[in-house]
Amino acid sequence: MSKTRFSPFTILLIVLGLFLAVFPFVNDSRTMLILFTQIFIFSIFAMSYNLLLGYTGIVSFGHAMFFGLGAYAIGICMKKLEPGWNGVLLAVLITVALCAVLSFLVGILTLRLKSHFFAMLTLAVAGLLMVTAEKWRSLTMGNDGFTFRVPDLLKDRISLYFIALVFMVLTYLLMRRFTFSPVGKVLVAIRENEQRVESLGYRVLNYKIIANVVAGTIAGFSGILYAVSLRFVNTSVFATEVTLDALLMTIIGGVGTLFGPILGAALIEIAQHGLMDLAKVHWIFERWVILFGTIFILVVMFFPKGIVGSALQWQFKRKNSQKATLDKKERSKAATH
């Protein structure tokens, strides 16, 4: 009878999944519940960014534009319509349509350019959306933003926790399926050598646009969840800091790894929360951005592949050295015989 063997990583994921499933029932702290919900939401956002940066090699400074579109879509739908499920569904449809069209248009106009020009142009488009949100006060209330009501199920912190968790797991599975598919492999090949992929007969631009549309739409979903969790939206959802957060989460967790952005999001959200709490101990912790900057520099210097990437590399080296030792032993055994 054959035994099914799980890898240590799969076991870790199962344990983590079980922990997250029972956490709301054993934990009384509302703050922790909100913190975990934020981690799930930013994990989704970081995973979408990782598809661009980690798998396709596209650097975008304007990924927040999709996050913001999702946040405003749900906010406006809930404000203008009854706060029911029809409004939520409409917001989802609007987000998918707007994010897909915008990412397609931005992609077709800018992805032909070299990476740094693309990065600058995405920054400009995100800036344009932010200014539009600021100036279109009748719809967005400008910088002040607005609060909105949501269906009762989404008001409940535990329900929202599970909805965000399910979406995070679904995004992870979708990313896994996508990056393991032939299209995903072409994206990795593009990241490594664009000209070579072109000379194999692929129209690179088409594949980059596919990555941009998928990443943009997923980022829109995370924006919806973010706005629902706060029941408030203002122009800060379009800010460059939101994109930079995703960049940090991806790089610290592990660029081009599936689990890296989740770990990165968890570390950054927990650190942010913990450091703000420490402000009572010393004023330096109020300036947590400075500490973040230092951590970021150290990670880039000593773990350029991020935590998950470095762990995978270490595991690979360990396996290889074990194999080499075994080979050596076998050779010396054979020589003595």
């Binding site: 032939p182 492999k185 990795v188 490594e192 000209q195 992929v197 000379s199 194999l200």
Partner: peptide, 15 residues
């Protein structure tokens, strides 16, 4: 022009 992060199999399949 080998794709370093793809396996030999994947390198062949992409081509």
């Amino acid at each position: 022009g080998i794709f370093n992060d793809l396996t030999v199999e994947e390198n062949m399949k992409v081509a």
